[in-house]
Write a protein that binds this DNA or RNA. Structure first.
Length: 178
DNA sequence: CGAACGATTAGCT
DNA sequence: GCTAATCGTTCGA
Protein backbone atom coordinates (compact mmCIF):
# COMPACT_ATOMS: atom_id res chain seq x y z
CA UNK A 1 0.00 0.00 0.00
CA UNK A 2 1.61 3.06 -1.21
CA UNK A 3 0.61 6.42 -2.56
CA UNK A 4 -0.63 6.45 -6.16
CA UNK A 5 2.36 8.32 -7.69
CA UNK A 6 4.83 5.90 -6.02
CA UNK A 7 2.96 2.87 -7.36
CA UNK A 8 2.63 4.48 -10.78
CA UNK A 9 6.41 4.87 -10.93
CA UNK A 10 7.05 1.33 -9.66
CA UNK A 11 4.77 -0.18 -12.30
CA UNK A 12 6.94 1.12 -15.14
CA UNK A 13 8.91 -1.89 -16.37
CA UNK A 14 6.53 -4.44 -14.86
CA UNK A 15 5.04 -7.11 -17.11
CA UNK A 16 1.24 -7.26 -17.33
CA UNK A 17 -0.57 -10.17 -18.97
CA UNK A 18 -4.27 -11.01 -19.41
CA UNK A 19 -4.84 -14.63 -20.42
CA UNK A 20 -1.18 -14.70 -21.46
CA UNK A 21 -1.50 -11.63 -23.69
CA UNK A 22 0.34 -8.40 -22.84
CA UNK A 23 3.81 -6.99 -22.28
CA UNK A 24 5.95 -4.49 -20.35
CA UNK A 25 4.20 -1.43 -18.93
CA UNK A 26 5.79 1.74 -20.31
CA UNK A 27 3.31 4.47 -19.30
CA UNK A 28 1.07 5.09 -16.25
CA UNK A 29 -0.77 7.91 -14.50
CA UNK A 30 -1.62 8.34 -10.79
CA UNK A 31 -4.98 9.57 -9.48
CA UNK A 32 -5.86 10.32 -5.85
CA UNK A 33 -9.06 11.13 -3.98
CA UNK A 34 -7.51 14.42 -2.82
CA UNK A 35 -7.44 15.98 -6.30
CA UNK A 36 -10.38 16.84 -8.59
CA UNK A 37 -9.04 15.06 -11.67
CA UNK A 38 -9.64 11.71 -9.96
CA UNK A 39 -12.77 9.62 -10.37
CA UNK A 40 -12.67 9.08 -6.58
CA UNK A 41 -12.74 12.82 -5.80
CA UNK A 42 -16.53 12.94 -5.41
CA UNK A 43 -16.45 10.11 -2.87
CA UNK A 44 -17.58 6.48 -3.00
CA UNK A 45 -20.25 5.58 -5.54
CA UNK A 46 -21.37 2.24 -6.86
CA UNK A 47 -19.50 2.72 -10.12
CA UNK A 48 -16.14 3.74 -8.55
CA UNK A 49 -16.32 1.53 -5.44
CA UNK A 50 -13.32 -0.56 -6.53
CA UNK A 51 -11.05 2.46 -6.07
CA UNK A 52 -12.07 2.53 -2.41
CA UNK A 53 -11.61 -1.22 -1.97
CA UNK A 54 -8.49 -3.28 -1.26
CA UNK A 55 -5.28 -2.46 -3.18
CA UNK A 56 -4.39 -4.67 -6.12
CA UNK A 57 -7.90 -4.82 -7.57
CA UNK A 58 -8.58 -3.52 -11.06
CA UNK A 59 -10.96 -0.63 -11.73
CA UNK A 60 -12.27 -0.71 -15.31
CA UNK A 61 -14.41 2.17 -16.58
CA UNK A 62 -15.91 3.23 -19.91
CA UNK A 63 -14.39 6.41 -21.32
CA UNK A 64 -16.30 8.67 -23.73
CA UNK A 65 -18.90 5.91 -24.01
CA UNK A 66 -16.51 3.94 -26.21
CA UNK A 67 -13.21 2.91 -24.64
CA UNK A 68 -12.51 0.67 -21.63
CA UNK A 69 -9.68 1.91 -19.42
CA UNK A 70 -7.70 -0.19 -16.91
CA UNK A 71 -6.65 1.02 -13.44
CA UNK A 72 -5.20 -0.63 -10.34
CA UNK A 73 -6.44 0.43 -6.89
CA UNK A 74 -3.47 1.11 -4.63
CA UNK A 75 -4.49 2.52 -1.21
CA UNK A 76 -6.04 1.16 1.94
CA UNK A 77 -9.75 0.36 2.07
CA UNK A 78 -11.72 3.60 2.30
CA UNK A 79 -9.25 5.81 0.43
CA UNK A 80 -9.92 6.20 -3.28
CA UNK A 81 -6.73 6.13 -5.34
CA UNK A 82 -5.49 4.26 -8.36
CA UNK A 83 -3.06 4.02 -11.24
CA UNK A 84 -4.20 4.21 -14.87
CA UNK A 85 -2.28 1.88 -17.20
CA UNK A 86 -1.83 3.98 -20.34
CA UNK A 87 0.55 2.01 -22.55
CA UNK A 88 2.67 -1.14 -22.74
CA UNK A 89 5.23 -2.71 -25.04
CA UNK A 90 3.66 -5.84 -26.54
CA UNK A 91 5.67 -9.03 -25.96
CA UNK A 92 3.22 -11.95 -25.58
CA UNK A 93 0.25 -12.74 -27.80
CA UNK A 94 1.02 -10.06 -30.38
CA UNK A 95 -0.86 -11.94 -33.10
CA UNK A 96 -4.00 -11.98 -30.97
CA UNK A 97 -3.69 -8.26 -30.27
CA UNK A 98 -3.41 -7.53 -33.98
CA UNK A 99 -6.63 -9.44 -34.60
CA UNK A 100 -8.50 -7.68 -31.80
CA UNK A 101 -7.30 -4.24 -32.90
CA UNK A 102 -7.48 -4.96 -36.66
CA UNK A 103 -4.26 -2.98 -36.96
CA UNK A 104 -0.70 -4.21 -37.54
CA UNK A 105 1.55 -1.40 -36.27
CA UNK A 106 2.97 -3.00 -33.10
CA UNK A 107 4.08 0.37 -31.74
CA UNK A 108 0.45 1.48 -31.58
CA UNK A 109 -1.20 -1.76 -30.46
CA UNK A 110 -1.19 -0.70 -26.79
CA UNK A 111 -0.24 2.99 -27.02
CA UNK A 112 -3.12 4.55 -25.06
CA UNK A 113 -5.55 3.29 -22.41
CA UNK A 114 -8.36 2.50 -24.86
CA UNK A 115 -6.09 0.73 -27.33
CA UNK A 116 -4.39 -1.26 -24.57
CA UNK A 117 -7.72 -2.50 -23.23
CA UNK A 118 -8.92 -3.51 -26.70
CA UNK A 119 -5.67 -5.37 -27.44
CA UNK A 120 -5.70 -7.31 -24.15
CA UNK A 121 -9.45 -7.89 -24.12
CA UNK A 122 -10.17 -5.76 -21.03
CA UNK A 123 -13.87 -4.98 -20.47
CA UNK A 124 -16.10 -3.92 -17.59
CA UNK A 125 -16.67 -7.60 -16.82
CA UNK A 126 -13.21 -7.66 -15.21
CA UNK A 127 -13.95 -4.75 -12.83
CA UNK A 128 -12.97 -5.66 -9.25
CA UNK A 129 -10.76 -8.65 -10.17
CA UNK A 130 -7.27 -8.90 -8.66
CA UNK A 131 -4.30 -7.91 -10.82
CA UNK A 132 -2.14 -10.76 -9.43
CA UNK A 133 -4.62 -13.60 -9.96
CA UNK A 134 -6.21 -15.31 -12.94
CA UNK A 135 -6.83 -14.19 -15.63
CA UNK A 136 -4.28 -11.46 -14.89
CA UNK A 137 -0.54 -11.79 -14.21
CA UNK A 138 1.72 -9.01 -12.92
CA UNK A 139 5.50 -9.46 -12.78
CA UNK A 140 7.25 -6.49 -11.19
CA UNK A 141 10.58 -5.38 -12.65
CA UNK A 142 13.67 -6.60 -10.77
CA UNK A 143 15.59 -3.43 -11.52
CA UNK A 144 13.76 -0.12 -11.79
CA UNK A 145 14.33 1.26 -15.30
CA UNK A 146 14.89 4.92 -16.17
CA UNK A 147 11.59 6.71 -15.60
CA UNK A 148 10.52 10.14 -16.84
CA UNK A 149 7.45 12.06 -15.67
CA UNK A 150 5.24 14.92 -16.79
CA UNK A 151 1.75 16.39 -17.00
CA UNK A 152 -1.17 13.97 -17.21
CA UNK A 153 -3.07 13.68 -20.48
CA UNK A 154 -6.68 14.55 -21.25
CA UNK A 155 -7.64 16.20 -17.96
CA UNK A 156 -8.81 19.75 -17.21
CA UNK A 157 -8.28 19.88 -13.43
CA UNK A 158 -5.18 19.54 -11.23
CA UNK A 159 -3.00 19.82 -14.32
CA UNK A 160 -0.03 21.03 -12.29
CA UNK A 161 0.58 17.59 -10.81
CA UNK A 162 3.22 15.74 -12.82
CA UNK A 163 1.70 12.33 -12.20
CA UNK A 164 2.23 10.80 -15.63
CA UNK A 165 5.15 8.36 -15.69
CA UNK A 166 6.89 6.69 -18.61
CA UNK A 167 9.83 4.50 -19.58
CA UNK A 168 12.60 6.75 -20.83
CA UNK A 169 13.18 6.43 -24.57
CA UNK A 170 10.34 3.95 -25.17
CA UNK A 171 8.88 3.71 -28.68
CA UNK A 172 5.55 2.47 -27.34
CA UNK A 173 4.22 5.54 -25.49
CA UNK A 174 0.78 6.99 -26.27
CA UNK A 175 2.50 10.36 -26.67
CA UNK A 176 6.10 11.50 -26.17
CA UNK A 177 7.23 13.18 -22.96
CA UNK A 178 8.41 16.76 -23.46
C1' DC B 1 -35.99 15.49 -16.35
C1' DG B 2 -32.72 17.16 -19.71
C1' DA B 3 -28.32 19.23 -21.01
C1' DA B 4 -23.41 18.90 -20.78
C1' DC B 5 -19.16 16.63 -20.34
C1' DG B 6 -15.26 13.33 -20.15
C1' DA B 7 -8.48 9.76 -17.30
C1' DT B 8 -10.22 8.66 -25.92
C1' DT B 9 -9.52 7.35 -30.58
C1' DA B 10 -10.02 6.96 -35.69
C1' DG B 11 -10.45 9.19 -39.71
C1' DC B 12 -10.53 13.11 -42.57
C1' DT B 13 -8.66 17.83 -44.03
C1' DG C 1 -4.92 19.98 -36.84
C1' DC C 2 -10.10 19.10 -36.12
C1' DT C 3 -14.21 16.56 -35.28
C1' DA C 4 -17.56 12.83 -34.87
C1' DA C 5 -18.74 8.76 -32.36
C1' DT C 6 -21.19 7.40 -28.12
C1' DC C 7 -23.00 6.69 -23.20
C1' DG C 8 -22.82 6.72 -18.03
C1' DT C 9 -22.70 10.19 -14.60
C1' DT C 10 -23.31 14.77 -12.85
C1' DC C 11 -25.57 18.94 -12.14
C1' DG C 12 -28.96 22.52 -12.82
C1' DA C 13 -33.96 23.54 -13.46
Amino acid sequence: MESAPVVARQLIGATLLLDGVGGVIVETEAYDQSEPASHSFIGPRQWNSVLFGPPGCVYVYLSYGIHWCLNIACREVGHGAGVLIRALEPSKGIAEMIVRRNQTDVRRLCAGPGRLSQALGVTGALNGKRIDKRPFQLLVAKVQPKVVHGIRIGISKAKERQWRFGLQGSDFLSRPFV
